[in-house]
Design a protein around this nucleic acid. Sequence first.
RNA 1: GUGGUUGUAGCUCAGCUGGUUAGAGCAUCAGAUUGUGGUUCUGAGGGUCGUGGGUUCGAAACCCAUCAUCCACCCCA
Length: 459
Amino acid sequence: MKPQTIKPSIPKGTRDFNPEEMLRRNYIFDTIKVVFQKFGFLPIETPAMENLTTLLGKYGDEGDRLIFKILNSGEFFEKAIENNNNLKTSKEILPFISEKALRYDLTVPFARYVVMNKNNIAFPFKRYQIQPVWRADRPQKGRYREFYQCDVDIIGSNSLLNELELIQIIDEIFTKLNIPIVIKLNNRKILTAIADFIGESEKITDITVAIDKIEKIGVEKVIEELVTKGISEKAIKLLKPFFELASKNLTSKKLIAELQKILQNSEIGQEGLTEISTIYNYLENIDCKADVEFDITLARGLNYYTGAIFEVKAKNIEFGSICGGGRYDDLTGIFGMPDVSGVGVSFGADRIYDVLNELKQFPESGNTSTKLMFVNFGEKEEIFCLKLLQQIRNAGINSELYPEHAKMKKQMSYADNKKIPFVALVGESEMLENLITLKNMKTGEQKNVVVEEVIEILK
RNA sequence: GUGGUUGUAGCUCAGCUGGUUAGAGCAUCAGAUUGUGGUUCUGAGGGUCGUGGGUUCGAAACCCAUCAUCCACCCCA
């Protein structure tokens, strides 16, 4: 019988990363991590899977659909139909066959973590978390089914200084990564006020989702969409002044002033506007390179946001948002810990990678980590090299010895291929004189030196 | 979940309205060059043409199905 072979493949929307890609990814993660720590955030990790009940209902209907469910183990199917033989739809069967799921984001697991560990946490709690999340979405440009989020959140503090700090973190990270960005800022309270103002409080989600598209599809199409969602004509009429304000390109200050007039009778609206202007007042006292733009069309779909919302877009490039977040006043409430407010943002590492790639903004170096390779001339020589190699490694220089006594050409090609900048040749003559022939692979020049000099040159 | 695109060598692709042995570049390996890579020259290996069925004397090409892919919508990092 023929041994059966399977065509190797990986699931849709997932990727392998080769060493070159990993070095670049780590450059992103390291940059982000360093800034997080600089602002006093501490790392945590949570499991890849959560109880399904922890996740369901937190991301809206669409979100629920996109959660990867994990099948129960054992005879789950028999058990499920034993007691309920009238189960028909997958939605009905779901709770009987699945009770775990892959995490959809890092914020909800974080809320769960906070509640479970509330007695051991000193509030306000500043944590960061860099882990993959999974979404059963159709993959396309900039969209994967498995991708890394880098979350920073501060929970247990209502202060708007936290919002400011997040803006500073965003600014610093993208400055370090050399990506010009614009930070868009809005407040859910303002959106709520607008929905109230036009008399369609119930439809706030539909309204925000539609408004969010204004830049993409234009006012006309947005109105069309609102009509199909059942928003009254009267309401749409009332909504128009807001569209006009949005498309006028006013400065953030002016826009706040205009909205304060229109929404003067809305308590929640005034609250939101005060929050925005407080953040802008803070911003005047710090140095911020990114543009921070107040944009009333910014909505964000996740329905747990209650205050400030953020979104970051790279300039000069058509791409989805590379960072987003906001304030949530009651995410912990559902786990039995009410009235704890948190605010945070999430950096999409994979999208940042794609942006850096398209902008050709990855730093040159860091293609390889090896700085020096010893050519292997044979048994006697490789033993002789071991001591030198250890000495050089102990000096903190990444180095390796070619593990086979292969042809010179092969070994040199290996070094060249791996972009190793220096090669050490230690053969019979070098051994006699206790010298190393150090070759610079870029210039091709080579000289005879002692170990100490090698260390000095490569340091 | 809806609509469209593309599947040919490890990679990027060519292959005319169906015609005999399916090509190129890059990569790989070997040699020119036994202690010198990246340049050059010579040669070699590598393909069930995504899969299954159909039309035909004849299919990589046409038809149907299926799977995969990428893109757009929805939504989002």
